[in-house]
Computed example of a mutant assay.
Amino acid sequence: MSTSDDGGGISGWADLSLPATLQAFINNPQKVILGAVLSGMLEWVFGVVSIGIDVILLVIAGSEPATFDAPGEQLGIADIPVSIANNLGGVGGTVGTAIISGVEAFNAPLFEAAAFAGPASPIILVVIIIGETAAVLWLLQRAVYVAADLLQLGGLTE
């Protein structure tokens, strides 16, 4: 059998070459193994750092970082003040209206009774208003002390 240079066969042992990766392994196996291990470790480190950044972002900004207190969002630290303000605004409006209605209902008979006092009725009305104002201020002071104790803001109640 004769060999020819027509490209149809193997001309010698030189034509039997190994793939580049296998040749690099044969030449320096330590370098190939070290490269494979280091690249795997590097991918693992990048994965852990990426997960850590995602967790920090979730804790600080919530599940929807672009919107504060979005409906259905898992709240983050930045969302808490906005959520509290929204919830207190709705509750505060209802409670405030109820308190004002209660004070008006309490004052109506007192003001009608003071009307029969003649010239002393303005003095009676001033005493009633001063008493109610003092009571409201005392209740607000107590509420601030309770809130300060709950939030552990030392120095306000000591």
Score class of each variant (00 low, 15 high):
A61F: 10
G62Y: 06
G62Q: 12
S63Q: 12
A66G: 14
D69V: 09
P71D: 07
Q74G: 09
L75W: 08
G76L: 08
D79H: 14
D79L: 07
D79P: 11
V82A: 08
S83L: 13
S83A: 15
I84E: 07
N86S: 07
L88Q: 14
G89S: 08
G93P: 00
T94Q: 15
T94Y: 10
V95M: 06
V95E: 06
G96D: 02
G96P: 01
G96M: 08
A98D: 05
A98E: 08
I99F: 02
I100A: 05
I100S: 04
I100F: 12
S101L: 13
S101N: 06
A105W: 06
A105Q: 14
A105E: 07
A105T: 12
N107Q: 02
N107G: 00
N107P: 00
A108S: 13
A108F: 13
L110E: 09
L110S: 01
F111W: 02
F111V: 02
A114P: 01
A114G: 01
G118C: 01
P119F: 15
A120Y: 06
S121W: 03
L125Y: 02
V126Y: 03
I130R: 15
I130M: 14
E132R: 01
T133Q: 15
T133Y: 07
A134H: 05
A134W: 05
A134Q: 06
A135P: 02
V136N: 03
L137I: 09
L137T: 08
W138Q: 10
W138P: 02
W138R: 04
L140T: 10
R142V: 15
R142A: 14
R142M: 11
A143E: 13
A143K: 09
V144T: 10
Y145L: 10
Y145D: 07
V146P: 03
